[in-house]
Amino acid sequence: MKRIVGLLVIALLVFWVFVSPDSAAGTVQDIGTLLRNGAESIIRFFTQLV
């Protein structure tokens, strides 16, 4: 069951990229920015502890 759901998610993501590549790229960039900001915040927090 997990394999079927995983393949379905991948198929939907590929479909989304083909149908709306600009939106997909923007979303991936937003996720990258969110992760980078989160990592910088964690680093800043631990730097302040020292």
Rank of each mutant, 00 (worst) to 15 (best):
M1G: 15
M1E: 13
M1R: 15
K2D: 13
R3T: 11
R3S: 10
R3K: 14
V5H: 10
G6I: 11
G6L: 11
G6K: 14
L7S: 06
L8E: 06
L8K: 12
V9D: 00
I10K: 04
I10P: 00
A11H: 01
A11N: 00
A11C: 01
L12I: 07
L12P: 01
L13V: 02
V14Y: 03
V14N: 03
V14S: 00
F15C: 10
F15P: 01
F15K: 14
W16L: 10
W16M: 08
V17G: 02
V17I: 06
F18S: 09
V19R: 14
V19F: 08
V19A: 12
V19L: 10
V19M: 12
S20F: 05
S20N: 13
S20C: 04
P21S: 00
P21L: 00
P21D: 00
D22V: 09
D22M: 11
S23F: 03
A24Y: 00
A24Q: 00
A24H: 00
A25I: 14
G26L: 10
G26D: 09
G26F: 02
T27V: 08
T27M: 13
V28F: 03
V28Y: 03
V28L: 14
Q29L: 08
D30Y: 08
D30K: 15
D30P: 05
I31E: 04
I31Y: 02
G32A: 14
G32S: 14
G32P: 04
G32Y: 10
G32K: 13
T33H: 14
T33A: 09
L34E: 10
L34K: 15
L35D: 02
R36N: 11
N37F: 03
N37D: 04
N37L: 05
N37Q: 06
N37R: 10
G38Q: 03
A39R: 14
A39N: 03
E40Y: 15
E40S: 07
E40R: 15
E40I: 11
E40T: 14
E40V: 11
S41M: 08
I42Q: 05
I43V: 15
I43F: 11
R44S: 12
R44N: 11
R44D: 14
R44A: 11
F45M: 04
F45H: 05
T47C: 08
Q48W: 14
Q48G: 09
L49H: 02
L49R: 06
L49V: 05
L49K: 04
V50K: 15
V50C: 10
